[in-house]
Design a protein around this nucleic acid. Sequence first.
DNA 1: AACCTCCAACTTGTAAGGCAAGTTGTCAAG
DNA 2: CTTGACAACTTGCCTTACAAGTTGGAGGTT
Lengths: 247, 247
Amino acid sequence: MNSLAALSPVEQQKSASQRVGDQLRDLIASGNLRAGERIPSENELARALQVSRPVVREALRGLSMLGLVESRQGGGCFVTDLTADRLLQPLSFFLQLHDHSLEELFRARALIDRGLAEDAARNASREQIEQFKTMVGLGFDLVDDPVGFRVMDAKFHALISEAADNSFLTSVSQSLYSLAMDSRRRASEMKGVLQQSARDHEAIMAAISKRDVEAAGEAMNKHVEHIRQTTLMAEQLASQSETSYAS
Amino acid sequence: MNSLAALSPVEQQKSASQRVGDQLRDLIASGNLRAGERIPSENELARALQVSRPVVREALRGLSMLGLVESRQGGGCFVTDLTADRLLQPLSFFLQLHDHSLEELFRARALIDRGLAEDAARNASREQIEQFKTMVGLGFDLVDDPVGFRVMDAKFHALISEAADNSFLTSVSQSLYSLAMDSRRRASEMKGVLQQSARDHEAIMAAISKRDVEAAGEAMNKHVEHIRQTTLMAEQLASQSETSYAS
DNA sequence: AACCTCCAACTTGTAAGGCAAGTTGTCAAG
DNA sequence: CTTGACAACTTGCCTTACAAGTTGGAGGTT
């Protein structure tokens, strides 16, 4: 019998600033510190927590990088609005790092948007379906106006999220959407791309208005697949011209 | 014409520690600092960047909270392994904060796990399918051992994630999984629940081994639906006994 | 009395120095 | 060759100090 198995790892107590940061984070999570609220000054916190000001500062800086708080010189430190895109910003670094996972992200978006479209087909109100119809009509008018189309496209996806009524999935979907936006911008300049998107939107709208859950999911799946293909194509073209420029 | 329109917002220069943090983060993102690599000491960085040591410390602390670096007292500061679950840890706070209704989270998990099961059916290797089979067999032996079954269950879902080979979705799925774990613990004590889960696992495994993508997704969907029902039921029972105790 | 100006107090940003605690590599003794 | 202790280095934490920005109120003006 190995006596090593009986040994518990040495309790590595976290650093003081880590503990302070955790406490403040829990205060925010539990609602004791609400969005926009002012946080006691660094000196007050230091006195209250029996630590030095640098410790408090490091903790606040950490929370600031996580998007939980925001400090204004001379003004004090405040809890941010705690919106989804702010809190999910570290996510974009993760994507930047593992950039080989573009395929993964498109797959994720396909899954999630398919689900959102299904739920939209289940829950959409009369007014929302009317909005879908006007948007689809508008889309066909904007196939030669990339900027205008992208604005409409964002609203279209937002409306689906709204109809699906799932704030968590909406947050994730929007993060994925905005992450691919730079690449998408290039792709939307290409010929025929927006035409295809307009047709896709029409198919999605038709399925939702008919309350056909499965068809809505399937149409959205195809839409994301089209976006994936054209976006990757645009990326390839961009990197090719880049290398030819470098050589 | 409004002359205000010509004014650009005051260039609010970020704080020094923020800039230092951004620089280090970019070094990591660009691969100049690789996973596990040692970061120059705080004093060296301070000299190199022409700032004071507290500034460097705050930057490193921020990156540490983001899960990018890890400092050991006396040992130095190192880039972490940069695994997905470490980098996506802020996500669990986000889930905790916006207490999205349990319904939303279950719906999200249903969507994502359905997709993972579909991809697992597409990609699973021979060895992984063998592992699935042994796990399913083990599951039926553990229907009277809630603790053992939960361990197996976690491995089962982890294996699906592994087979699906999508680190992003895996992280989200695991976050959702562990988030509902406390509630799940209660539910798994109930009669028949684990029996149903074992049968669900069998159906999922069968679909995957047959490479039936759609059936795998459908089986997983039903599985999550069963989990949802029994978990919510257990929650209700718990809250009922709680109120009766309080009165 | 209402309003404006200015300043003092407060808050965050940054710098510098110092000591404690932990790790690591080296070097000498066994 | 192994082992032990020591020295150098590194992070953790504290203190003090000043710069830069914000805020609110005192005091004078209208």
